[in-house]
Every structure is written in C-alpha cells, then in structure tokens.
Simulated scan of single mutants.
Amino acid sequence: MQHLKEFLTRIQTFDLRIIEDDIHMEWGTNEKKHVKVYDISHQTQYYDSFSYRSELRVLKDMAFIDLIALDKERIKLQLEELAKVRERFKEFWRNYHDHHSEMTQVYERHFVFSVNLEYLFIVNGLQSTNAEIEVSSKFAEDLGESVKLREKFLRELIYATETAIKPKRSEAEFKEWLDAEREKREAATAETTNETIITPKSETPDVSETAAVQEAVTEPELSQEQLAAGKLVGYYPTFKEGAAGQLFDLLKTYFVPEEHAALEKLLLDDEAPASPLLFRGSATQLADAFKQLKEANLIVGCRMSDLERWIAPKFLYLSPQSQPRELPEDYLNGLMSGTKRPCKSPILKIERKEDKFFIVPASRNKK
C-alpha cells in the first residue's frame, strides 16, 4: 500500500514558495507594490508545471494497483477512506468560494487561514500573518487550480476502483435492470405531481425519451443505493417549455459564434458537444445562471448535484488572466449547492408576469 500512501500524501500536501512580485495592495487604484508573496504555480497544470500533473498521474496509477491487489472487503474500506479525503476537498471549496472572487484583486494576508487550508491539509512554507508575506490574486487563482488537479486524480482513482469491483452483468441483464430502475423512478415521481414535461434525448445509450416530473423545491434525501442507481440511470436536467430557448438567446453572447450551434443543441436537444464549450465569463456567473433556473423550477427532473455533474464536462470558463479553466463537479458544488451566492455580477435574472416567465440580462459585464 506504499503507492496509495504516497498518492494520498502528495495530493494533500501543499508546498508554498515565497517569491517577489508586483501586486495590487489597495482597492480602487492601479498602483502596484513590489513585495514578497506566496506562490504555488509549480503545483498546477499550467505555466511550466507539467511535471506535477505527470507525477500525480503516475502515483494515481500505482495506487490503483495497490488497491486492486486487496480483497473486496478491504477495497470497500479503502474506498470509505478515499471518500473522506474527497469530502475534505469539498469543505475546502465551500471555504474558498466564501473568500474568493474573480473580481477581487486585493487579498488579506490571512486568506490561506480563512479557507482553512492549514487545517484541512499539510501546508509547507506557510508563515504567520506577521511575516509580511502577501497573498496575490494570482496565488488565490493558482491555489484553486492546484486543488482541482489533485481532486481530479482522486476522483479518477475512486471511479476506477469502484468500477473494478462492480459485479459484471450481461448486456441483457443490464438493460433489464436499467429499465426497471427507470420505471421505479417514474412511478415514484408521478405520485408527487401530475405536471409532466418531455425530457430531451438522454445521454444514456439505448434509452428512449421519458417524461420527467417537476420536483419539489426541497430536494429529497436519497439512500446510498438510490444514489448509486441514480448515477447509472441518470437524472438529467429538463428545461421547462420555453426556458432552454430563452437561456440560449442570453448565453450565446458569451460564446464565440463558432460554438453557437453546439450550445443550441446542448440546451434544446441535450446533445453533448464534442469538446467543452468556452464560456467567456467567470465560473461564478455560469454557475449562478444555472442555479437560478434550477431554484425557479425552470430546470426540473434532477437534483442540484445532478445538474452540477451535467455541467462539469460540457463547459470551460475564463480565468481573470483570460485563460480557459475547467469546471470540476466539486468546484461547482461549492458554487451551486450552498445557500450563499458567491456571484457578485450575475448575468441573468428571472422575471414572472402572471403565468409567464422571462429570462432577462442582469448585467452586460462579460469578458
């Protein structure tokens, strides 16, 4: 289990460096000062840090070999421990989104302590706030990117291990089970409401279009068995009639014209793009847009976590440095599933007049 130990230690260890840089120190001015700042760019997948990504990938592959050499019961125990580590990353994202914004250029020295990084993980090189080591906006962004990368390989390890111990089903057995689970879901949801909306073509192969039922505002608690079934059967976002078209008309201004056709197919026909679409705005703006629609019941047929899972592989966003960045599930979870609204500059608002709804621009701020 040496490789698993090395992998878990590596993804939970943050090696901060101290460098000198010119950064903004005061709000409302473009003046910069030459100061000492924290740096973690060497533990991201950007800049010249490709070796770190490769190192984590190799450690992850070796950790998987350690795991599959165990018996099934011990593998399950190890998966429980891996789930605890993943939950630690989720807690980091909740803290991070409370104290970080793409609009922020000036950070307090206690930012690292505010997100509880030193409590959740091993942090080398961190000094007290009296040491006059500043936190730059670049460091705040790089810290998030570093966590995304670590979390990515942890998710891959968990998924590969779970897949390896699943009982094998024949094609006929799997289809029979899948159909039965869908029927159970439809029967259960049909008891709560009579309002139905036709679901767009599912991403699940060989599954016909079904009727999705508008869910209550409060999301139901699901058992572990139901959650596992939900991941395979698929809870897909269903737009209320007219919502997808209005959302497309608003969102398309944030994408290059070459991506408009793919965006329209995604929103109106649930046809996933061949590659992620680049939203030319912030992550919080995109997440807030979908969250508003979900909370207004203009997106139904899924839980918020399912919507996050649906969004993650389909979109990228622009960092403050105008670089494409990924949207992992747990990162989105911190933005969408909490009660707070991290977005300081939303791009839309939803207005209702009698029995009609309108998705209208709330801001023209875009990159």
Rank of each mutant, 00 (worst) to 15 (best):
M1N: 11
M1F: 12
Q2C: 07
Q2M: 09
H3R: 04
L4G: 03
K5L: 08
K5G: 04
L8S: 11
T13R: 00
T13S: 05
I18G: 01
E20I: 10
D22R: 15
I23P: 00
E26R: 14
W27A: 15
N30L: 09
N30M: 03
K32A: 14
V35R: 08
Q43D: 02
T44E: 03
Q45G: 13
S51N: 06
Y52Q: 07
R53P: 02
R53L: 03
R53T: 08
V58P: 03
K60V: 01
D66I: 00
I68K: 12
A69H: 06
A69Q: 09
L70N: 01
K72S: 08
R74M: 09
R74N: 13
L77Y: 06
Q78W: 06
E81L: 09
K84G: 13
K84W: 08
V85I: 15
F92T: 02
R94E: 15
H97N: 02
D98K: 13
S101I: 00
M103T: 13
F113I: 04
L117K: 04
F121Q: 02
I122H: 13
V123K: 04
Q127F: 07
N130S: 09
A131V: 00
E132S: 13
E134M: 15
V135S: 01
V135Q: 00
V135K: 01
S136K: 01
K138N: 10
D142P: 00
G144M: 08
G144S: 05
S146T: 08
R155A: 00
I158V: 09
I158D: 02
I158N: 01
I158E: 06
A160N: 15
T161M: 01
T161K: 02
T163C: 02
I165C: 07
K168V: 11
S170E: 05
E173N: 11
E173V: 00
K175F: 08
W177L: 13
A180G: 03
K184I: 14
A190V: 06
E191K: 14
T192R: 14
I197H: 11
S202W: 03
E203W: 15
E209Y: 09
A212L: 10
T218Q: 14
E219Y: 06
Q224D: 15
Q224F: 09
E225N: 09
Q226R: 08
A228G: 11
A229G: 12
A229F: 07
G230W: 10
Y236R: 08
G242F: 01
A244K: 00
E258Q: 07
L263D: 00
K265R: 13
P276D: 15
P276V: 15
G281W: 03
S282G: 14
S282N: 09
A287E: 04
A289F: 02
K294I: 05
E295I: 03
N297E: 14
N297R: 15
I299S: 04
V300Y: 05
G301T: 03
R303Q: 12
S305P: 00
D306P: 04
L307A: 03
R309N: 13
P320L: 05
P324H: 08
E326S: 07
E326Y: 07
L327A: 07
E329D: 07
Y331W: 09
N333F: 08
M336E: 15
S337W: 00
S337N: 12
T339E: 13
T339R: 11
K340Q: 11
P342I: 07
K344R: 13
L348W: 03
I350N: 02
K356C: 06
K356T: 13
K356S: 15
F358C: 00
A362T: 02
S363E: 10
